[in-house]
Structure formats: C-alpha cells, structure tokens
C-alpha cells in the first residue's frame, strides 16, 4: 500500500489542519465536476478514490484506530442526469466513452430538438471539438432557454477565463513564503546573469 501522506503530498508530521487543507485542495482539483464529459473522468475518479482512502487512513490512524470520517467521499459517483426516454441510451454511450455508437444513434434520430442538440454538443465536447460543441449547446439553449443543464454546458464552453491553478508557488508550509530576503537574492542573481554573460 502506498504511503497516505505521500498521496496527499504532506510530511508525516503535518498538523491535522494541514492534512485537512491538503485533502481539500486535492479533492477540489480532482472533483468530478471538473471532469464532466471528460474522456479522463475515470482516471480522475480513481485519483479521487486514492485521496479519499489516504485521508481516511490518516484520520483513522490519528484517532487511534477508530473509524475514520469519510470526507468528501460520498455522493461523488455517477453524475446524474434527468433522463429523457429516447435519449438515455445515447447519454449512457457518451458517458461511457462509446462515442462512435452515440454518434450513430444521434445521426439516426429523426428529431432535432433541444435535447438532441445538447447531446450532440456533449459528444463534440468529449471529442475535444469545442467550437462545434458551443454551436450545438447554443442551439439547445435557444430551443429551451429554461433548461439549466443546457445553460451550464453552454457556459462551460463560452468562458474565456484561464484554467484555475490551486497551487501557486507551492504550499507555504514548505518554503515559508516569499519575503524581502528572497527578493534581494533574486535581484542579485539577475544582476549576475546580466553582467556575467553578456
């Protein structure tokens, strides 16, 4: 079994608070919400499981063998959709990564309603064809403006913000932050490079 502390990226002597913080950050990073319709969702789920297990193990060990508290673990599994009768097979095919089958079903479908456009969008999103995905989601939203799921999907592909990085310059516990001294050393180093090599 792997070292649970290593899984969470913290030293053995980390305080309970640090354990919790490390766990929360990792859980946020690998949260299934970040991997909706993502071809790597299963890997993220595995990672999530590892993190949960590591956290459970640590809390159990620290409480002297009592049953650990499962943090974020419950209720993360399958992402539940409200299922339409005709489309549930397609949804399942997209979710399980059987994209070719999903595409065949969608192309064979006679109707071109909001749900169809939404699923077409999801399929394209999963393939990485984000521009087409956006067009389909847009159409789904136009047809059914009140559906939150469609709107959320459209939002995801229309956002223009950069990926959000949880870890900045590494955890403060390890390098003690950025103070004036670091700044001075950095300036000195830069100066040396400036003069030495030109």
């Amino acid at each position: 079994m792997t070292d649970p502390y290593k899984t969470l990226g913290i030293p053995q002597n980390a305080t309970d608070e640090e354990v919790k913080r490390a766990y929360r950050e990792l859980a946020k990073k690998y949260h299934p919400d970040n991997y909706v319709d993502n071809p790597l969702a299963d890997l993220a789920q595995e990672k999530m499981k590892e993190i949960n297990e590591a956290y459970d193990t640590i809390t159990r060990m620290r409480r002297g063998g009592g049953s650990g508290q499962a943090g974020y673990s419950s209720g993360y599994g399958g992402y539940s959709y409200q299922s339409g009768t005709d489309y549930s097979a397609i949804r399942q095919a997209i979710q399980s990564g059987n994209l070719q089958y999903a595409e065949e079903l969608l192309n064979a479908s006679q109707t071109r309603d909001a749900e169809w456009n939404f699923l077409m969008g999801s399929l394209n999103y999963r393939k990485g064809w984000l521009d087409d995905a956006r067009s389909f989601f847009q159409r789904a939203c136009n047809m059914n403006p009140s559906n939150m799921e469609y709107r959320q999907a459209l939002n995801t592909v229309s956002q223009t913000n950069s990926p959000y990085r949880q870890t900045g310059y590494g955890p403060p516990a390890q390098n003690g932050g950025f103070d004036m001294c670091d700044m001075c050393t950095a300036m000195m180093c830069m100066n040396m490079m400036c003069n030495g090599c030109r």
Partner: peptide, 21 residues
C-alpha cells in the same frame, strides 16, 4: 474574437485537467 478566445480557453482548461492526472 470572443468565439475563438472561448474555444481556445476551453481547450486550455481541458489541457490543465489532463495535466493534473
């Protein structure tokens, strides 16, 4: 411009999600 920015940023977010794994 907005459409291209959105599609590229979405790709970069997916790249980051993959990178984390």
């Amino acid at each position: 411009r907005q459409a291209v920015l959105a599609t590229l940023m979405s790709s970069s977010r997916l790249a980051a999600a993959a990178f984390e794994l």
